[in-house]
Amino acid sequence: MQVFTTHTGRAAPLGRSDVDTDQIIPAEFCKRLTKTGYADTLFANWREDPEFVLNDPARAGASVLVAGHNFGTGSSREHAVWALRDWGFRAVIATSFGDIFLRNAFKNGLLAVALSPDVVERLAGCAERDPAFEIEIDLDRRDVRADGGTWTFEVDRRARWLLLNGLDDIGVTLGSAQAIGEYEGRRHSWLPALRRGELATGRPAEHGVAR
């Protein structure tokens, strides 16, 4: 996991709420097999509008996205986070986030920071007026500093610890392998378990043979 301690960057105001992951990255771009290479797909449909904020040359290099409420709602696609990261965003500030998006974000070193509506509105206003407006985010102190103000934010304790130390999430969990094994010994014996080949009825359709 990529280390995240502090970040200071220019803010881009999205000016929208309930931004679903289908807007962040349309499904047609979720066919790739990689975790990178998604910068061109970020907000692909909205970017067709020349007035869209990320099309403004003055916003090039912005690394903190300021949205409204319920950012990243909808589909579980982690591609939404990969696209934001590839574009150059290190943090998103909003009043609330979709649950799955929030988990996906921290797993990729993208900090999703929830602040109160009046603060988010104030930061968005500053960013709208001034493309050079900067926001500082400190994960260790759990606060955001900008426009002369300081606001603290909540963050999942494990996520914060993993990010501050750049730890491998799965590696940490595998440290509990013994407890996992013990739990498995206590599971109900009737719970379903599958053998490969148990359910499939026959041969898959051969690709290349149209029917």
Binding site: R77, E78, I100, R103, N104, D169, T173, I180
Partner: peptide
């Protein structure tokens, strides 16, 4: 419940998730 790809990998490797 639904999860993202990083959690899919986590479950494949550990059959668990760390959750509040």
């Amino acid at each position: 419940f639904g999860v993202g790809t990083s959690d899919v990998e986590h479950v494949l490797a550990t059959q668990t998730l760390a959750l509040v």
